[in-house]
Nucleic acid binder design. Structure first.
Lengths: 204, 204
DNA sequence: TTAAATTATCTAACATTGTTAGGCAAAGGA
DNA sequence: TCCTTTGCCTAACAATGTTAGATAATTTAA
């Protein structure tokens, strides 16, 4: 009866392998190339095995997204604890998103894709940390605070998505600026943070 | 030989019907349901007819996107000429995007989808009008001006995409605000515009 | 230990997709 | 009238997600 544990672990490993295989394929050939058969081939099982671990392909993708948000939350926390004052934490938070997006490009694109309206409790969970920091820097609360965070998220994902697109298509915009995309991004976010910061928090 | 003209027109009509059919299907069942066979059925032709007018499905979609940008540019112009001073024009420009996005929801999602890195000269063309207005309001030029416009576009599409997503998933965020999404959007954009406007243009 | 039952996995098939090859029939030109 | 071109179709291909049913392995019960 103690085998049940090992069994479950093995099952989970298959589940994990499926998820990993999907991400690996996406990394090298894009999400369009992520196919049940290719996943099966990668993990050396037959295609139907996927359906013993996921209801269908959408379910599989959703799982990847959820894990993505968990990972992002973790990155956020790591970056935030590394910086002292709240204003710097806000920039750190922004940069955390950027670095996550660069490191997990495909995953990020999936997570924030407009076409996939997936409401995620994970995202909700992560917003607690964010809310704290924003409250501190902006001095706002309640509705106004929500609105600022909303603004930030939009700006953040808008910029990241756009710079990524520019990079892919070798858009002249990036050449014009002789700075690295990451620095460019930081400039943008710094400006936004300054615009919402109280004069108090501006002093340091 | 004069028939050539009429013939071409008829050909173009098929082409147009294909595009229309694709958009109609997308409107009612989403882009995933846009399929060569369904398009063919809608226009009462056989599937291969599509390939006499488009190289492949991607080509068809690209064409839809290009026409979308042309339409958006037109909307922009209409809204801008209807407002007098530059600052109001800037808000008008923002609202034009919003209204276009609401009226052509699926098209908009397609046009600004992260997953589809399509560099479009059309978008470039439309940016001329935008650049003028921004230059006037912000008093900037060159690199700084580009950067502000970039910021605006990111914010704009970020907010629109996000509010749309919230609407679809009946996210509590929208309930908390007892305002209509459009008004909420205008608030956000107004704040941004104020933040970039020179003190000069702030006076009126 | 052995028979039964359960579980893990596979092979084979299905319908749906994009796409292409090849043919037919109408129209136009000689 | 015959030949060529054109417009369109039927039929097929391969790749996709997904399911049904069979088989092999393992666990349980006797």
């Amino acid at each position: 009866m103690g085998h049940l544990e090992r069994k479950k672990r093995e099952q989970k490993n298959i589940r994990g392998s499926i998820l990993n295989a999907a991400i690996t394929i996406a990394k090298s050939k894009g999400w369009n190339a992520v196919t049940i058969r290719k996943i099966a081939e990668a993990i050396e099982y037959s295609p139907p095995i996927v359906y013993t671990h996921f209801q269908n392909k959408d379910d599989l993708i959703r799982e990847i997204i959820i894990q993505g948000f968990q990972k992002l939350i973790q990155t956020n926390q790591e970056y935030v604890v590394a910086s002292k004052n709240a204003k710097k934490q806000l920039l750190a938070l922004s940069v955390a998103h950027w670095d996550f997006a660069v490191e997990n490009r495909e995953l990020y694109q999936l997570m924030f894709s407009i076409e996939r309206p997936i409401p995620n409790e994970e995202a909700e969970r992560g917003s607690l940390l964010i809310k704290d920091i924003f409250a501190h820097v902006s001095g706002k609360e309640g509705r106004e605070l929500d609105s600022i965070i909303f603004n930030w998220v939009c700006l953040l994902n808008g910029i990241i998505g756009m710079i990524m697109q520019f990079e892919e298509s070798e858009h002249p915009f990036l050449e014009k600026y002789a700075v690295k995309p990451r620095d460019l991004f930081m400039q943008f976010m710094q400006r936004f943070i300054n615009s919402i910061a109280t004069t108090e928090s501006l002093s340091n």
